[in-house]
Amino acid sequence: MLGLDLTAWVLLCCGALIVGISKTALPGAGTLAVAVFAAAMPARESTATLLILLLVGDLFAVWMYRRDVDWGILRRLLWPVVAGVVLGTLFLGVSGDDVVRRVIAVILLALLGVTLWRRRQESSAPPGRMGGYAYGSLGGFTTMVANAGGPVMSMYLLAMQLPVKAFLGTAAYFFFAVNLSKLPFHAGLGLLNTTTLTIAVVLIPLVVITALIGRMIAERIPQKLFDRAVLVLTAVGALYLLV
């Protein structure tokens, strides 16, 4: 079907399941979905297919966490993210698949190192305005070139010391707006076509299933376990992209 073999479809189904749960319970898992899709399809086309699924997951997350949002953080990130998306579009237009994957992996590993270092500081304060600008621009860049902005923003929201539901709600609104704004850019690059859209439609039910399961997990997961899961999943996804 659509030129994909059985192995590719199994990988895509696994990736779709990860998308749903990453949107409503474990944000750091999103990078694993990026890696799985890139293993099943050409990296550039995989970003367009994954974008549709991410938007479906975003819609569920926005609905589930509509009362748990830090609007101040979102306002602070607006313009840096726009700048990052524009830069990412230019980069995606001139870079090959291998370069895209490695650049994203290096960015994620660097941010992971910064986050771990900050968490070791006993009196580490949340990032200030300039820190928000830096994270926002990197989030816009990475989400445009590889749909990998989730881990960048996860590192930022962890640094802001948000509770689980406020974390998920703020991330939900942020990524719904960002992913929606990316649609015309992907269309302009010719990445949204009949093939990528058809694959996405086939996989949407899997995203819905795990998005609903993720809500139940978020209701029960302790804060410390949630924070550690985000860090571990970010590290695993970054290393996969690097290799």
Rank of each mutant, 00 (worst) to 15 (best):
M1I: 03
L2D: 13
L4W: 03
L6Q: 11
A8V: 05
A8N: 01
C13S: 14
A16C: 03
V19Y: 01
G20I: 11
I21P: 01
T24I: 13
L26E: 01
L26M: 13
P27G: 06
G30Y: 00
G30W: 03
L32Q: 02
V36N: 00
F37V: 01
F37P: 04
E45G: 01
T47E: 00
L50E: 02
L53D: 04
L55Y: 02
D58F: 07
L59G: 08
V62M: 11
M64W: 13
Y65D: 02
R66P: 02
R67Y: 08
G72I: 08
R75Q: 15
L77F: 15
W79L: 14
P80C: 09
G84H: 07
T89W: 15
L90Y: 13
F91N: 01
L92N: 07
L92G: 05
G93C: 07
V94K: 05
G96Q: 02
G96I: 00
R102G: 06
R102C: 04
V103Y: 11
I104P: 14
V106M: 06
V106E: 06
V106L: 14
L109F: 00
L111G: 10
T115F: 06
L116E: 13
W117E: 11
R118P: 01
R118Q: 12
R120G: 12
E122C: 03
A125R: 14
R129H: 09
G131T: 06
Y133I: 04
S137G: 14
L138W: 06
T143Q: 11
L162I: 06
G169L: 12
F174M: 10
F175R: 04
S181A: 14
L183S: 10
F185K: 13
A187G: 14
G190P: 13
L192R: 00
N193Q: 14
I199R: 05
A200K: 11
A200H: 15
A200F: 12
V202S: 01
I204V: 15
A218N: 10
I221L: 15
K224Q: 12
K224M: 08
A229H: 06
V230C: 07
T234N: 09
T234W: 03
A235N: 03
G237R: 10
L241F: 06
L241S: 00
L242Y: 05
L242V: 05
V243Y: 04
